[in-house]
Amino acid sequence: MPEVLLETRGLGKRFGAVVAAEDVNVSVTAGEIVGVIGANGAGKTTFCNMVTGYLTPDLGQILFRGKDITGCTVGQATEAGIHRSFQIPQLFPGLTVYENLLLAVGVFGHRRPPWWQPLVRPEVENEATAIMERYRIAESATTRVDRLPQGVRKLLDIAMAMVGQPAMILLDEPTSGISTKEKFDVMGNVIDALRKSAATVLFVEHDMEVVGRYADRVIAFREGRVLADGTPGVVLEDPAVIEHVVGRRPGRAPDA
């Protein structure tokens, strides 16, 4: 029986009159790749923010590996093994791709190695190089991040989130801002690399083609509640999901 990695019980969050989450009960098993879908404002990002400690839920509990992590800080969630990437990549724009990864590898868990040692030691350099190769961004190594194309930025953002080998990673719209042509390349690279790292993945996505292709399981949100939860085949065909989330039958060519 695989381990239940993440479990939320009756999660609730309000911003004034807006219900961002209500009675959200989700459980994710180790090794799963879960797609999270929903219209804008359905509560997908709020869910990510609560799980990673960025927001504290008003109600309910978050369990990670059976441990209650409700109300923990971002730092504590990160230490527990939940990392995330961002819809808008959060990088160190004035540094190169390589320097970004050096910095990430070097400061991650900075209390463990003797912190007065120079950051750039062979093991740090090797890990940064290995990550660049795993995510196929090594050819941009010496490019400053603010001069990178969006697709590479997205990859680097996810690569940065994978520093420290988290047990679970939340990807917030990994293909947003990427051209239709590039999106399967980017997503293919990401899923490939994530499978190699044996990470459990929860990804928020608007593109139903991407969800259908890469998710083992899909959770649909609507107005802060879980509307449907199951295999892509079932959830993406659910009439309520089609009406409120997809807006059209899956499989048909996208408008773009």
Partner: peptide, 25 residues
């Protein structure tokens, strides 16, 4: 010290605090 992780964390503060927080710093 400036060449150590804590010194580099400074660059992280200057460049992007949100990412630094998500690196556990």
């Amino acid at each position: 010290i400036l060449a150590s992780p804590i010194g580099y964390a400074g660059q992280g503060v200057r460049e992007n605090e949100l990412r630094l927080r998500y690196l556990g710093v």
